[in-house]
């Protein structure tokens, strides 16, 4: 299959579901039930699976912002969020945000975090 050769980001291996898979594979390797090469292949399968599932099966939308000093409601300085660092390297954006509020479109759920790191790869190569 052509898609087998297509490369997918290994980015999502850091996610909780990816880390859980890595741990589970580690366990199996440690028991010498599978060898590391096979584990790498399974991880590559994971790269593809999560990219496809996220692309095709998730419809949820999300918006997030950090409260800005210029906003309508005056906020105490500690509540103000900011983009702490940004980095663009090898087509990967990395942002560190402080005091972020995530708003889920459906359900109106709001989640706040004092610190979030965003790692984002370009959508272009696999986007179509």
């Amino acid at each position: 299959m052509a898609t087998d050769k297509q490369s997918f980001y290994e980015l999502y291996r850091q996610s909780s579901v990816g880390a859980a898979l890595t741990d589970a594979l580690d366990d199996l390797i440690m028991e010498t039930r599978i060898d590391p090469q096979l584990a790498m292949k399974i991880l590559a399968n994971f790269d593809r699976a999560i990219a496809e599932v996220l692309q095709n099966q998730v419809r949820a939308r999300l918006s997030f912002k950090v409260p800005s000093p210029a906003g309508d409601a005056p906020l105490p300085p500690t509540m103000l969020g900011s983009l702490d660092t940004y980095r663009f390297c090898d087509e990967v954006w990395t942002f560190q945000l402080k005091n972020v509020t995530f708003k889920m479109d459906s359900g109106g759920q709001v989640v706040s975090a004092d610190k979030v790191k965003i790692v984002s790869c370009t959508a272009k190569p696999t986007g179509t």
Binding site: S15, L54, A60, L62, F64, L83, Y86, V111
Partner: peptide, 29 residues
């Protein structure tokens, strides 16, 4: 002022996971 449009993401905050198809973010440096 930064604006970004993100997609196909996994978000992990406060011990919970969220997935999204599309996300927009606005923040200031």
């Amino acid at each position: 002022k930064w604006k970004c449009v993100l997609k196909d993401g996994v978000l992990s905050v406060n011990g919970k996971d969220y997935v999204f198809h599309k996300a927009t973010g606005e923040y200031e440096w």
